[in-house]
Write a protein that binds this DNA or RNA. Structure first.
Lengths: 191, 191
DNA sequence: GGTTGAGAGTAGACCGGTCGGTCTATTGGA
DNA sequence: TCCAATAGACCGACCGGTCTACTCTCAACC
């Protein structure tokens, strides 16, 4: 037993937060879905907000794992690694039923009123863009991108446009917007 | 008096929905903010959900007004009109304190659980993309865009990427992501 | 090795507050 | 006179969170 009640809560929480968002994620609903008494939830987490922040942490662990697996793959040229990261992510979205990105969802919902979440999500996007920028910069130095390519800003742009495409994916429950966005970006950036 | 109670509710509702999202928009808070008794609200609107749908309708009226004012301006070449539409929109975001786009916000928050809103928001994006596609197509026929330019799909792409940049704008409370996105898109599209 | 005490974890009744929504009474202009 | 509109008390349901009671596990001790 021990810690696997906590893990069960986190696993179910990730799914529910992605689908329902923060305000529509009821603690009671989570407990019912996981057959957990309330006492256990508040034993592991001080509040619903702390729980959600930990869910974002979990989500980011997975994102970084994806970045490790793709950007770190030296058998591929750097641009192809970046592209592979997003294609891997797209595959993950498909498995989840095309509900888009949790960071985008929570960010949209809460950043208008909650400073803690606003700063947290912004920091997550920054971390992702930073790592992608590193790989783009490698591509630039190899001559795969124009010499005046602004890696860091173009990484932000890529992440932002991806999030927009992910929102559309959530609305349409299909991946075409993601694919179209990647095609356009890489054609334009290398062109 | 007459209908201006209703208008007051809609005006305040637009602001609150943009900032708080749907689930965190309390009917009571709206009534307090506008000094309106509950009886009046439910006299004009059958439910909170119907109210929010009417808010989206109002939002779209403004969007279409913006499209009319820009895409319909024959004194500018078609591509410049499209760009002006987004720059006008960016100006609107600025006035609101960079809270992004209401369609993106509500779409993200509700499309995972509420089919009515999901379909509604998707239809809104389609309507916008459709009108932009018309203008892009005009540009293509004039030779301002490549002959094989897929106007309709490129309009969707533009709208999607814009929404992503708008989310980032909301997170950072500044417009740089919007500007960067427009610069990239128009530079890349015109080749 | 059996007894016992401490603390992690489980269990769920219960709390005040707020939610969206209803109801009845009243007002005021046409 | 009539009815749109205002006014707000009131409703049951549910919200996140607290509290107490209980059940284990396991280590300390004679």
């Amino acid at each position: 037993m021990a810690q696997d009640t906590k893990q069960r809560l986190l696993d179910a929480g990730l799914e529910m937060l992605l689908r329902h968002g923060y305000n529509d994620l009821g603690v009671q609903a989570l407990l019912t879905a996981t057959n957990t008494p309330k006492g256990s939830f508040y034993h592991y987490f001080p509040s619903k907000e702390a729980f959600a922040l930990e869910l974002i942490e979990c989500y980011m662990v997975e994102v970084h794992r994806g970045l490790d697996a793709t950007l770190g793959d030296r058998s591929l040229p750097p641009l192809a690694r970046v592209r592979r990261f997003f294609e891997l992510t797209q595959e993950k979205y498909r498995e989840e039923g095309y509900l888009g990105c949790m960071l985008g969802g929570v960010g949209q919902e809460l950043s208008g009123v909650n400073e803690v979440f606003r700063a947290k999500i912004e920091q997550c996007f920054n971390a992702i863009a930073e790592r992608i920028a590193g790989c783009l910069e490698e591509a630039r130095q190899r001559g795969d991108l124009p010499a005046d390519f602004a890696s860091r800003r173009m990484a932000d742009l890529l992440v932002n446009c991806w999030e927009g495409a992910a929102l559309r994916t959530r609305l349409r429950r299909d991946p075409t917007s993601l694919q179209a966005m990647l095609d356009f970006y890489f054609a334009a950036a290398t062109g």
